[in-house]
Design a protein around this nucleic acid. Structure first.
Length: 309
DNA sequence: AAGTCGTGGCT
DNA sequence: TAGCCAAGACT
């Protein structure tokens, strides 16, 4: 390709708004032959299955989600089925997926869907965004994956793929920037069907090939046009992501407390909860936090249980 | 807008 | 081993 000599920009200059036209076909073709057969991608999953999977997959690996997802949808095949349960049952069924407030929010979303949307997961992005536990990413993901709409689906995988393939950096910024949103929108294929396939395909590429560590460029369908690779894979120079320490934190104590409560249908005496952690101040703070979050319901006589309301 | 919020596998 | 990392949301 020769450089343009007139005012017409090259259709394929790297990083411009047209670079998507060279990215979409190979990535989508790769997806068609390499996509994992995940239950929420099957037609029978429906919008509710897609939505449940998106909640569970927030910060949690696919392999850990799979069994809980299957059990969840068998028990609550529609939003209304979950909505009529106490929120504590959602927390219990959440098991050890982590971040149990997601279970509470998913229950709250099911209630809202039942009350406001006749029991059907809404198609409208703004209505999805208004549901508890649904942010910009999840609203776009449900609208795109469940309803085939055209949205920029900007999760950590897509952000990394775009950072490398287009921007030429090893990792995206810590927090999603306006520039990233603009780029993702500019790269969005024009028609709905292609856009939704691109969303799923670029995400899968980040999950399977263009991974955070040990990326496998020899399996990448766009390796030959990847800006980061063409630049010699310069290492990340920005601020390192803040490490998540866990041992000894309130989060660990909360996890231990909730694990006890999940195992017991009957209310649990405080004396039993006291055994999960030695340090009384931190222990009390963690329990108070769980109550404040609505994950634990305090009863008279120093008893605690998962919330019935 | 920087902190908080679980859990477990992997290197 | 001790971090690092995994389809974020919320405040």
């Amino acid at each position: 390709m020769t450089a343009p000599t007139n005012t017409t920009p090259s259709p394929y200059s790297p990083g411009d708004s047209d670079s998507g036209t060279t990215l979409h076909p190979p990535v989508i073709a790769w997806f068609d032959s390499h996509a994992r057969d995940l239950p929420w991608r099957r037609p029978e999953a429906g919008p509710w299955g897609v939505m449940v999977s998106e909640f569970m997959l927030q910060q949690t690996p696919v392999n850990r989600v799979l069994p809980v997802y299957e059990q969840w949808l068998r028990r609550w095949p529609r939003p209304a089925d979950l909505a009529q349960e106490p929120p504590g049952e959602a927390v219990r069924a959440w098991g050890r997926l982590g971040y149990p407030r997601r279970a509470l929010r998913l229950h709250g979303a099911a209630v809202a869907i039942t009350e406001r949307h006749g029991g059907d997961v809404p198609e409208d992005h703004a209505q999805l965004l208004a549901l508890p536990g649904i942010g910009e990413y999840t609203a776009a993901a449900v609208a795109s994956f469940a309803y085939g709409q055209r949205h920029a689906v900007l999760d950590t995988n897509v952000r990394r793929v775009l950072a490398r393939a287009v921007t030429g950096t090893q990792f995206p910024p810590n927090a999603t920037t306006a520039a990233e949103r603009k780029l993702a929108r500019a790269l969005l294929p024009d028609d709905e069907r292609t856009a939704s396939r691109w969303a799923a395909a670029s995400m899968e590429l980040g999950a399977l090939v263009c991974t955070a560590k040990n990326e496998t460029c020899h399996r990448c369908p766009i390796a030959t046009q990847c800006a980061w690779r063409l630049a010699g894979k310069p290492p990340h120079d920005g601020p390192a992501r803040r490490g998540q320490t866990y041992a000894g934190t309130d989060r660990q104590v909360r996890g231990k407390l909730l694990a006890v409560l999940r195992e017991s249908v009957a209310p649990v005496p405080q004396s039993v909860l006291d055994r999960v952690w030695d340090e009384p101040v931190q222990r009390a703070r963690a329990l108070d936090g769980l109550v404040a979050d609505g994950l634990v319901e305090p009863l008279p006589n120093g008893l605690y249980r998962l919330p019935l309301t």
